[in-house]
Design a protein around this nucleic acid. Structure first.
Lengths: 262, 262
DNA sequence: TATTTTCTATGGTCCTACAATTGACTATGC
DNA sequence: GCATAGTCAATTGTAGGACCATAGAAAATA
């Protein structure tokens, strides 16, 4: 007659069950709350601009301590999902992650992951032609005016300090990214531009000759954009970024050579 | 004889000074500490895998309360710069932001900014050809094997459930992104793939016909990658993603039509 | 009506205390 | 001697209370 214990599963099944368990990670209460609030925000329970419950209300609802609630709010703030203001009628307001926040995150990742300059250049080579193409297709008159304005300043700055030239150059690319009317492409491009700017500043490779070539390339692209010739704009951007990649590579090679025999 | 008071600046200068002041935002102590620790981490004061000072050491050094110190650590944790473990010999160790963390941030941004599907498609059109190009150039034998393996599974899944097909499809693109050996491109592509997957699932437009076409396109790209023919791979990826964009657009148009006359 | 003052709910900060965790160390049993 | 179990201690995790600083609204005042 079968006993109760004889009905239990075999040792093999127990081993399987053990393996199935795996490592268990216990999240912190602040992370759990942050996650749940994030879900509610994404599901529209709290819309943009609306106030989350006050800290003390969250304490009452969750039975967590105020410290844990505040840590959860700091997490959401770091993700750009809420902004908190003090004072009466203050509180945590649901907001959209800003451009600069995402750019910073991309920058942090790239530094941490030791993304090589080559990878940055490749990504730029992927994005820049599409940005030029779209800018030619979608630009408004305001976009065009702004690009032209920066172009003029850029031409005037050929002989000025390198930092000013680099900054104006960045502005030009930023205006171009605006003109393409694609928020995601814009941020990707600007994050990469920011990362490459650091390299450029270190390298200091913006010689007079390089600057002149850059301005001419910009002008050619701008002409195509003004004419609304998307295909030509794309092709010219392709050539521009390829030329830039070559110059940068040569500069980096030079640096390596220098370091090996100073 | 000039008095001391006559040596003070004019009212005009005072007005200038007032304008120079502008709005002043007082940051929270936790944000200040988070920023300073982040700078130290980026400057290599604490290397990857190293421990930050303990919470109580930070309290002693900063004269902040432990609560503020902990909020700062939660901010850094949300940025992916540290991971904290409890227990003796635990603490906050410096770490690199993970791929998934950046992907989530991109996803959060795109949702919040209401990035239209059109912009996602455009960005994908920019990235996919470059990824195929680089994959053909940089692929290892392991990359190739993995791609082939997923391709086989994908062909076998033509008649299976849509979610399984979509998932395998995502895996294929993920493997392709790995093969290009560019960490940044990979994450951008996967973040967009994740966002588009949501759309696809809603649309449920993976008909048998579409699936067959997708598999054929993959095979053509894979052939070029195996041959190491980067230029061909790029061209084929271009055509693939353009075709995909067309199908998606048609599906979206259909949905709009349906909604207007249900 | 315009200005100032007061009021008060809210986040910001500090403090204390204790629980939970976890790796190293020690003791135990065989 | 070795494996197992138990103990210890430093660290994070959490709770709760107290008070300050802030900032709008509302009331008082001119």
């Amino acid at each position: 007659m079968p006993t109760l214990s004889s009905l239990t599963v075999s040792k093999d099944h127990q081993a399987d069950a053990l393996a199935d368990l795996g490592a268990i990670e216990v999240p912190k209460s602040s992370e759990v709350l942050a996650r749940r609030l994030q879900d509610q925000i994404l599901n529209g329970v709290y819309g943009h601009g609306e106030n989350l419950p006050t800290e003390r209300e969250l304490v009452a609802a969750t039975t967590l301590s105020r410290g844990s609630v505040r840590e959860a709010l700091r997490i959401l703030e770091a993700r750009g999902l809420v902004t908190t203001r003090a004072g009466r009628y203050g509180g945590s307001v649901v907001s959209r992650p800003s451009d600069s926040m995402l750019e910073n995150q991309i920058s942090l990742f790239a530094r941490g992951a030791n993304i090589p300059v080559r990878a940055l250049v490749e990504t730029r080579q992927a994005l820049a032609p599409m940005i030029a193409f779209l800018a030619a297709s979608n630009r408004t008159e305001e976009d065009l005016e702004r690009l032209k304005s920066i172009s003029r300043q850029l031409e005037a700055a050929t002989d000025e300090s390198v930092p000013r030239f680099l900054r104006l150059n960045a502005d030009w690319h930023s205006a171009l990214a605006d003109a393409c009317h694609n928020g995601l492409l814009k941020i990707f491009a600007e994050a990469i531009a920011g990362l490459m700017l650091e390299v450029s500043e270190i390298e200091n490779f913006a010689t007079h000759e390089v600057r002149r070539l850059a301005i001419e390339a910009h002008q050619r692209i701008l002409d195509a954009i003004e004419a609304g010739d998307a295909e030509t704009a794309r092709r010219r951007a392709e050539r521009d970024v390829a030329a830039y990649a070559k110059v940068l590579e040569a500069t980096l090679q030079m640096r390596i050579a220098k370091e090996q025999s100073p």
